[in-house]
Design a binder for these strands. Structure first.
Length: 924
RNA sequence: GCCUCGGUGGUGGAAUUGGUAUACACGUACGACUCAAAAUCGUAUGCCGCAAGGCUUGAGGGUUCGACUCCCUCCCGAGGCACCA
């Protein structure tokens, strides 16, 4: 038995040598090589590496090393996103300053990162807190300011009482709490530095087409931006004012029977003399602004509102006079803060109209009702049935479910004709089937369609045919039955006025000259008639970037004595963060207390000038770090265009799912803004993105100190070594899926065991190896090459395990051993380097070319294929992959296990897929 | 409610993209070595059955010679959005 390898000794030795040899420094771009820019999210220097960092950095390193061994020049940089609240809070707790705390953390974490043994491009590192980094953050901000991308806005902002600062919309979680501190966010009105991300909304949506990202990330960004295409339409008030509304359904304009303004709408104050119930209106406005802070998120609350007495609006489509309300279900911050309400075709408008007795006027008839259902007879109208049909493709017997059968009003002849027709088509008797509930008609072969519009006057009891039983039920009783198909329930509710609105597109009626037109066509036609404008509106809000905290990039703005903001000119950048500040959070910006900052401002700009005292959101810092990496020593530009041309775009960006609608959206916006200013070469930074999942504790829960299930990577490394930790994380599952994997102590032991066996492979050397071994090696190499490119490191590792299992039994030649070491090198860089040298090599294994498989050696000369009889697996035969059908059939017949299924049978048809399957179909 | 993914042994997960389902690893059981334990090695391990054989990829149906894979309906889970007009 060979000696166990000493992971700690090997790893330390090689890490040191690699660093001395500058093995992983990239230096200047070498255009003889293809480039590969691999990006991972730079960490916040919180003090200690956790297992998530390993998952984030060590696993992609496999891909990085593979690409290097393919001869590519790979940039794999690492840096620190070091501004932010935790440093400030820690500094307060320890009575030190954030810079000291941050820098000592960076020093410590750099060592921990180096213990991973990754091929990081340390010569390209940067940190957001370096002055030569944030100088450029500030300069870009001044460029944005001068080009009206950054502006001093005002409005309602999110105030986090825990962080004592304003935060952006993206940083507020769905439950209304802060993503960082967990505190409940308060709404405050205060002036804010904003970035006009909303100007880029269309491009942020449309350019998603250009990038190779998983659909779920794209979709999350689209939904976050929330583009709605619709129209703006002007309504005239009786006071003479115009109110513009936004609607996505201009086709329903003839059904707009009232109008609603948001309680914050500016026209209210302007028209208060004409509003006869002004006191009541004011009370409602006050109430709703208070309510907004707590109940805005509650979608289920009852709708409230107040009618504006004395004011009416005119529906521009038919010139009808309609009432005007204020209601807090209309948000001031979305669209135009005013809506046309169409109760017949919108759920919210419908419930509001019912409550306040407003007319409900249908203008769009549904074309089809897409529900599954049942057979029901209408009591007062014998022979009148509701039934369900499926709209199926006659050929494939699959397709859309749809088309509701209609009631035939008391006309025996028509009814029986239709039923007959249907029965013939369906080849079943509809009446024979148990009634309410869904039923799949197996032999449907045609598409049937009967309009459902006859239903409007059904107000009756129903006769339910349930097997043999015939029951008479009221609508209420029917709706209570739990075997009623959901879709039929919806229809019945609509028929009985329980829910008499319909939001589907359809065909117009009650709409004068547009009657009979489809919703799609009517949208533009009606907008044109009333002089409206087709437009889009967005959910996305401008990005608020000012923070009332200390440890961040000072906003490089100074105010003249009139209070007008000016950008700090380039020659005064970096506009340094003053140190003479008590930064304990009070809600007031700490920089306001800096004497030095104040004096600096007056000295440079003149008496009466004052500095901006807010700092930038740290998401600003991380919006461009990948540009700095590639040109990290440039003193003339944030990142030279010629360097960008050599390295951008980022070929693959590995990161966490939590950044989907924050960092990933912000940095795309930032890139586009820079692109418009000619500062970058492309307007999308990330060609490809992979979100990874989470590593859970051994108990399957999210790791947390309170649960006591935290895995400390340093501890694991000292137990089994860095190679084992890295490989285990890669082995848990495919990397490119947002799946969460529990840490398994047994699992990591299995990986270490595998490496131990690799370490002992020299005991299995043979002069001439079995051809099966050679073949297995080449097949393994082929699989590694495809799997690594698809980030399927788990199956790549399993292929190598299978190879080791085989050669332990059969032995391998030294040449194959060396090829295998090279194949394993990206996964276990330390051990393979050690074994490589033990095998007598003097260069680094990591400078070797990744093995290339010889396809002719990877082909099997004998394969085992399955043999089926009538589609059932009955045995297997071994034969050459290219034998003829006749030979294969002969071999199959020769096997007794298969023979017995063929006794007394004629062979009708044989399906033979060489190398795959033989299927024998008997003809009797 | 809407959108996007998923659902395969006791567990993490494989499956050449329609062709022998459960690779690899963990776990478990038994055995070997050991005074003993750990470690290591060997054998077995989807389920039912003594066996022959039968069943099995969330449930049901369809297409196909053949379905984890494609189509339809339903159920369950994760993530995102949600009074967004």
């Amino acid at each position: 038995m060979h000696k166990k390898f000493d992971a700690a000794a090997i790893e330390q030795k090689w890490q040191q040598l690699w660093e001395e040899q500058k093995l992983y420094e990239v230096g200047q771009r070498d255009t003889n090589k293809e480039k590969e820019y691999v990006l991972v999210e730079w960490p916040y220097p919180s003090g200690n590496l956790h297992i998530g960092h390993w998952h984030a950095f060590a696993v992609p390193d496999i891909y990085v090393r593979f690409q290097r061994m393919q001869g590519k020049q790979v940039l794999y940089p690492m840096g620190f996103d070091a501004f932010g609240l935790p440093a400030e809070n820690a500094a307060i707790k320890r009575d030190t300053d954030p810079r000291t705390w941050t820098e000592s953390n960076i020093a410590h974490m750099k060592n921990q990162l180096k213990s991973m043994g990754n091929a990081f491009s340390w010569d390209k590192t940067t940190s957001s807190t370096d002055e030569d980094y944030y100088k450029w953050t500030q300069w870009m901000f001044t460029q944005f300011f001068e080009n009206d991308i950054a502006f001093r806005g005002k409005g309602i902002v999110n105030w986090c009482p825990g962080c004592n600062t304003v935060i952006a919309n993206e940083q507020v979680l769905a439950d209304g709490t802060c993503e960082r501190s967990g505190d409940v966010i308060e709404k405050k009105e205060m002036p804010q530095w904003m970035l006009r991300i909303t100007n880029y909304a269309d491009r942020l949506v449309d350019d998603l087409e250009k990038v190779d990202w998983p659909e779920h990330i794209k979709e999350a960004q689209r939904r976050w931006i929330g583009r709605s295409k619709g129209a703006e339409i002007d309504f005239k008030l009786s006071t003479g004012d115009n109110v513009t509304v936004f609607t996505t359904r201009p086709d329903t304009l003839f059904g707009a029977t009232y109008m609603v303004l948001a309680p914050e709408h500016p026209l209210l104050e302007k028209n208060k003399k004409q509003i006869q119930n002004w006191d009541e209106v004011v009370r409602y406005i006050v109430l709703s602004t208070q309510k907004n802070e707590q109940d805005r998120l509650d979608a289920t609350k009852e709708k409230t509102g107040v009618r504006l007495e004395g004011i009416t609006a005119t529906n521009p489509a038919n010139n009808e006079e309609i009432p005007v309300f204020i209601a807090d279900y209309v948000l001031a911050s979305y669209g135009t803060g005013a809506i046309m309400a169409v109760p017949a075709h919108d759920e919210r408008d419908f419930t509001f109209a019912q409550k306040y007795g407003i007319a409900i006027k249908s203008v769009v008839a549904p074309q089809k009702i897409t529900h599954s259902g049942a057979l029901l007879e209408v009591k007062d109208k014998p022979g009148t049935f509701l039934w369900q049909l499926r709209d199926l493709d006659a050929k494939t017997n699959s397709g859309k479910i749809g088309l509701f059968g209609g009631a035939i009003e008391n006309d025996e002849d028509v009814l029986s004709a239709v039923v007959r027709e249907i029965n013939e088509e369906l080849e079943i008797d509809l009446r024979g089937y148990d009634a309410v509930g869904s039923y799949t008609y197996p032999s449907v072969k045609s598409d049937c369609y009967i309009s459902a519009t006859h239903f409007s006057d059904i107000q009756s009891n129903y006769v339910l045919h349930e097997g043999e039983a015939v029951l008479e039920l009221t609508i209420e009783e029917l709706l209570e039955r739990d075997n009623l198909a959901d879709s039929l329930r919806v229809l019945l509710e609509a028929l009985h006025g329980k829910k008499a609105f319909n939001t589907d597109l359809g065909v117009l009626h009650n709409s004068e000259e547009f009657d009979g037109m489809s919703s799609e066509d009517a949208k533009e036609a009606i907008v044109k008639k009333v002089g409206g404008r087709m437009t889009s509106t967005y959910r996305l809000r401008d990005w608020s970037v000012g923070r009332q905290r200390y440890w961040g990039v000072p906003i490089p703005i100074v105010y003249d004595p009139e209070g007008k903001p000016h950008a700090v000119p380039k020659e005064h950048l970096p506009w340094t963060l003053p140190s003479d500040v008590d930064f304990k959070p009070t809600g007031e910006a700490p920089l306001a207390k800096s004497k030095e900052l104040k004096e600096r401002t007056e000295k440079l700009f003149g008496a009466g000038w004052t500095p901006e005292v807010e700092t930038l959101d740290t998401f600003v810092d991380s919006s461009w770090y990948f540009l700095r990496y590639i040109d990290n020593e440039n003193t003339d530009a944030l990142s030279a265009l010629e360097q960008q041309k050599k390295w951008m775009p980022i070929d693959i960006y590995f990161g966490g799912a939590e950044h989907t609608t924050m960092h990933l959206l912000y940095s795309r916006f930032w890139q586009k803004a820079l692109f418009d200013l000619g500062l970058v070469v492309d307007d999308e930074p990330y060609a490809k993105r992979i979100n990874r999942g989470l590593i859970l504790g051994p108990d399957g829960n999210k790791m947390s100190k309170s649960k006591g299930n935290v895995i400390d990577p340093d501890e694991q490394v000292s137990r089994v070594g860095a190679d084992s930790v890295k490989m285990y994380l890669a082995f848990m599952g495919p990397y490119g899926e947002v799946a969460n994997y529990p840490w398994d102590m047994g699992g990591i032991a299995g990986i270490r065991r595998f490496l131990e066996r690799v370490n002992g492979l020299h005991e299995h050397f043979v002069e001439t190896e079995n051809s099966e071994v050679t073949k297995a090696l080449h097949k393994t190499i082929l699989k590694l090459r495809t799997d690594i490119r698809l980030y399927k490191f788990n199956t790549a590792i399993s292929a190598m395990m299978q190879f080791v299992n085989l050669v332990e039994k059969q032995g391998l030649a030294k040449k194959s051993y060396e090829m295998f070491l090279k194949s394993l090198a990206p996964f276990a860089p330390h051990l393979t380097e050690e074994l490589w040298h033990e095998a007598g090599k003097t260069n680094s294994v990591h400078l070797e070319e990744f093995p290339v498989a010889d396809p002719s050696l990877a082909i099997d000369d004998v394969v085992t294929i399955g043999v089926q009889v009538n589609g059932k697996m009955r045995g297997a035969i071994e034969l050459a992959p290219d034998v003829s059908e006749e030979e294969a059939l002969l071999a199959a017949k020769g096997q007794s296990s298969i023979q017995k299924y063929l006794v007394d049978k004629n062979i009708g048809k044989v399906i033979y897929v060489p190398g795959r399957i033989l299927n024998i179909i008997t003809s009797d």
